[in-house]
Amino acid sequence: MYNFSYQKVSSVADAVDAIKKADDGKFVAGGQTMLPTMKHRLASPSDVIDLGGIDELKGISVDGDTVTIGAMTTHAEVAASSDVQGTIPALANLAGNIGDPAVRNRGTIGGSIANNDPAADYPAAVIGLGATIKTNKREISGDEFFTGMFETALEDDEVITAVLFPKAEASAYMKFENPASRYAIVGVFVAKSGDIVKVGVTGATACAHRGLRLEKALNGNFAAEAVDEVEIPVEKMNSDIHASAEYRAHLVKVMTKRAVEACS
């Protein structure tokens, strides 16, 4: 790790102020990706601005059919929340299966979404449930938030404050884990409300995306076999030592079918 300046702020305004003053500043939320990257000397921010002291970013609330999760809420808190379990159980399950206990007790939903790791779990839920990402500046729809590998719609001085998840009638997340890292090789979040089916896919491509072909098939017939006919474009799939593009494309369908089955 290279030397850097550290400051812990207690409000979003102070955080924005601090990053504007920094040469090459970075916000740190749970630090579960950022700190290992810094320890490996692969990142060397001049300033690390810790969002951990901002109370307004923490906590979970339910208002009607919307679950609002503060950006600095940990995965463990989401997993254990009776509000989340009661409203969107698939989201609680997803959070409870991220990383390991150490990661879940430090890592936050805001940090995960802002980092936009192509194999992260939360982005699939954000897209699949049609969540809205609230920042200090605006509200961004889940579909528009994830723009590329480790790239998001966030501006440099923009801080996620909360994620608003609309309740779905039924939803499920199915993750095919990388045997080494236990990140998603493919993760599929399926949510159904009325006749509307949404599918969020993570792990498969450069960043999480909506499975529009899958949605189209499922909108008419919400059944696992409806997925069989869908063609997943292999050329868009990631390929690495753990899974070829062809295998990933296949897994997208398998995980979708299993998620559909788990919804019913």
Binding site: P179, A180, S181, Y183, I241, H242
Partner: peptide, 22 residues
Amino acid sequence: LLEGCQYDSDGQLITASYMDYA
């Protein structure tokens, strides 16, 4: 089932952490 140490043809170790070595 899990452990496979792999070098690429340039001799770079591509399973050099627990992210890739199971």
